[in-house]
Amino acid sequence: MDDYAIGVLTNIALFSFIALSAYLLLIAGEMSFGQQAFFGVGAYAGGILTTLYAWPLPLAALAAMALGAVAQFLVALPTLRLRGLHFAMATLAAAEMARILFELMHWRREIDGELAGPDGTQGFRGIRWIFEHGIEPLHYLGIVGVLLALVLALFLMIERSKLGATLRGVGLDPELAASVGIDVQRIKLGVAAAAGALAALGGVLYAHHNTYIEPRNFDIMLGVHSLAYALIGGLGTAFGPLLGVLLDIGALESTRVFHGYRMIVFGGLVALVLVYRPRGLLDERTVQWLRQRFS
C-alpha cells in the first residue's frame, strides 16, 4: 500500500470514532452539534500528556477518554431536559466555548531544548510519540483499525442486548420509555459520557496521526460533518456511520474523480439520499430486511 492509501484509510478510521459518537446520541434521541469539542478535548489532553509529560500513548489515551467522558457528562447534566434544537444549540455553545478556550490555552514547556505544547491560535506542534517510538504509518493504521473494530463489536453487542432496545426506546419516545420504568435521565447521562469518551478516543488518535493540531480543527464543521456521516450512513446499525465516512472521505476525496467539486457532489448526494431515505442508507427497515435475508 502506498502512503497515500494508508493516510486515507487512517483518516476514515479516525473520523469513524466521532461519527459513531454522533450516532450513539442520535439513536438515544439527541442531536448534538458539539461532538467536535470532545474530539478536541481528547486531542489536546492526549497530546499534552505524551508530549509534555512523556506518558505512553495507551495511558494518555485512557486518560483522554476519561476526560472526554467527564466533559460531556458535565455538559449533559444541565442540558438533560432540553430537546431538539435547544439541545443542539446548547451543545454547540459548549463546543464553541471549548474551541475558544483552546485558542486561549498557552501551555508550553521546554522539551529537548525546544518549546513544545499548545500555543493558542498558533496551534500545537510536535506531537511525535508514534515517530519517537518507531511506529510506521501502516502499523499505526493497524492499531487504529483494531480499536475501531473493538468499538464496533461493542456497539453490535449492545444493539443485540436489552440495553440496545432500551436506548432505541428512549430515543423514539422518552415518555413511553419512562412509563415502563426506564430511568431516562440515567440512560441519557450514560450515553453522553460514552459518546464523550468515544469522541475523545478519536481525538487522541487523530492528534498523534497528524502531529499538529489547532483550535480551528475543532469547529462546527467537524461536528455537523459527523452528524451528517451518521445520518447519511443510516441509523439502523453501527455500520451506518462508517458507511457515511467511507462515502465522503473514501469514495469522494481519495478517488479525486470530482477533484475541486467534491463538496458539491457530496452535498447534493446527501440532500438527495435524505429525500428518499430520511434515516439514512442503512436505516432500521433495511437492516431488518438484510438480517432476515442473511440469517
Binding site: L26, M31, G84, V224, L227, A228, L231, I232, G260, Y261, R262, M263, I264, F266, G267, G268, L269, V270, A271, L274, V275, P278, R279
Partner: peptide, 25 residues
C-alpha cells in the same frame, strides 16, 4: 419541501449538505 411533516433532523442535515455546496461554489 421533501421533509414536510417528516424528519426535522434529516431536513437540517440536508441543509448543512447544501451549505457545503455553496461554500465550494
Amino acid at each position: 419541501a421533501p421533509h414536510r411533516g417528516g424528519s426535522a433532523i434529516a431536513a437540517m442535515v440536508a441543509s448543512f449538505a447544501l451549505w457545503m455546496q455553496f461554500e465550494e461554489l
